[in-house]
Nucleic acid binder design. Structure first.
Length: 423
RNA sequence: GUGGGCGUAGCUCAAUGGGUAGAGCUCCGGGUUGUGAUCCCGGGGGUUGCGGGUUCGAGUCCCGUCGUCCACCCCA
């Protein structure tokens, strides 16, 4: 038996990095006072066909759909924004109020697997509702920059920025684009020809030279964009300039989900081959209404954890912090209970240290080897001699200092001071 | 979804032109009483991803399948 295609097991060594990175990210979101929600993995399929767009690749060919016992179509969520909006609408949290929210968890898309692209993958998302101005767009981008800084990967990532205008302007431009391309359909590459009726804006970032040269003469969005959107975009850029957040304007940046309008942005990297999008988002002022609520402006982003982790590893190396701080060796099997009781007191006194008590007996030599192998800084010895005096032996495995024999209180004090400078 | 590369021990990899699978690391034991990582000695471990086919004989050639990686595509 093996895991399904595209489903990955995260084993202890890797999970240690996940915990570190996830905690660092969520800490940033916390410090910006974004509150957490936890959302279901299953939703009505209609939430996504309406929210994301029925003509998008995500819905059209990547969604894991199934039917429940009543025959209703349900789906594993392919992304988080639609669920988040649905949840907040359902519980009235968007009624005459603004919200700043984050969530995280697995998403599912049935794509052909690749490094940094799995069928179950994990995102951390942040969304802000009820605020129309570019200030909150800038805040979300600033938050992203802060996340990369905290993770030490800011040197690997660059920000791309664009505006899609309001949905009316975009629809007008889209219509002009289709009118321009339709007579020239024969010169388009196959994929682009297929997109012409369903999702023409995606033709813009086609990689085919023939298509690209055709686009050089195509109607320009600059002639269609509305003034409010221009002002919004200019305002956002001014704020980012003031915050010192560097960006590259990319007029071809078109998010693959229908719900975006105005601001769209993407944090990309060169180090992950074709899977260069680490984090992306934008404004989606129309989404709440599409889902069946009153109109509520929204803007947000989602970052891909696997890709962030790959970058983190590329920058910081493969080493993960050891899982154990103190490995406790029990020399005589009859002292196991005493040792376990004593370590309970140590865990109480030293909540930041991780104690592992040897189990299964065996010679001290082997127990010491286990202590070394798990990466523990200290070995703690429960032997006849030490226990007779109600003390324990402490050996520093990473420094050439003499072994000490200490009572409980002295040991707690000793590990507390040493524990500080080791972390 | 399309095209291609790869799949041999827990891990990283060998195996001449088809001739019944090997190394390093890991792991286990030993080097005399209660001290790890080094050193020495010994040991365990594989239905060569899976299923067919060709052949006297297949890890090696062919087909299928599963998985993975790369590009396309898509996206976070």
């Amino acid at each position: 038996m093996q895991a399904l295609r595209g489903m990955r097991d995260v084993l202890p060594e890797e999970a240690r990095r996940w915990r570190m990175v996830e905690r660092a990210i969520v800490d940033v979101l916390d410090r910006f006072a974004y509150e957490e929600v936890r959302l279901p993995l299953l939703e009505a399929a209609e939430l996504f066909t309406r929210g994301i767009g029925a003509a998008t690749d995500i819905v059209e060919k990547e969604m894991f759909g199934l039917s429940d016992r009543d025959g209703d179509s349900i789906a594993l969520r392919p992304e988080g924004t639609a669920s988040c909006v649905r949840a907040l609408l359902q519980h009235g949290l968007l009624h005459n109020q603004s919200q700043r929210i984050h969530y995280r968890g697995p998403m599912f898309r049935s794509e052909r697997p690749q490094l940094g692209r799995h069928r179950q993958f994990h995102q951390v998302g942040a969304e802000a509702f009820g605020m129309v101005g570019p200030d909150v767009d800038a805040e979300l981008i600033q938050m992203g920059a802060e996340i990369w800084r905290v993770l030490g990967i800011e040197g690997e990532i660059q920000l791309e920025l664009n505006t899609l205008g309001c949905s009316e302007a975009r629809a007008a431009w889209r219509g002009a684009l289709v009118r321009y391309l339709r007579p020239r359909q024969g010169d388009l590459d196959g994929d682009s020809a297929k997109r012409l009726e369903r999702n023409p804006l995606r033709i813009l970032d086609s990689k085919f030279p023939a298509t690209r040269s055709l686009l050089a003469e195509a109607p320009k969005f600059a002639d269609y964009i509305d003034d409010d959107s221009v002002r919004h975009y200019e305002g956002l850029k001014r704020l980012l300039d003031g915050l010192g957040v560097a960006y590259v304007e990319n007029p071809l940046l078109v998010r693959g989900l229908d719900y975006y309008s105005r601001t769209v942005f993407e944090w990309t990297t060169e180090r992950l081959g074709a899977q260069g999008a680490v984090c992306a988002g934008g404004r989606y002022d129309g989404l709440a209404e599409i889902i069946g609520g009153k109109p509520v402006p929204g803007v947000g982003f989602a970052l891909g954890l696997e890709r962030t982790l790959l970058l983190h590893e590329a920058v910081h190396g493969a080493g993960a912090p050891p899982p154990v701080d103190v490995y406790c060796c029990v020399l005589q099997p009859e002292h196991q209970g005493v040792a376990m009781a004593r370590v309970r007191a140590l865990r109480d006194g030293l909540p930041n240290l991780r104690f592992r008590v040897h189990a299964g007996g065996g010679r001290l030599k082997n127990q010491m080897r286990r202590a070394d192998q798990c990466g523990a800084r200290w070995a703690l010895l429960f032997g006849e001699d030490e226990l007779r005096e109600n003390r324990m032996g402490l050996k520093d495995l990473r420094n050439e200092t003499p072994q000490e024999t200490l009572g409980l209180a002295a040991l707690v004090e000793r590990l507390r001071t040493a524990g500080m400078d080791s972390t």
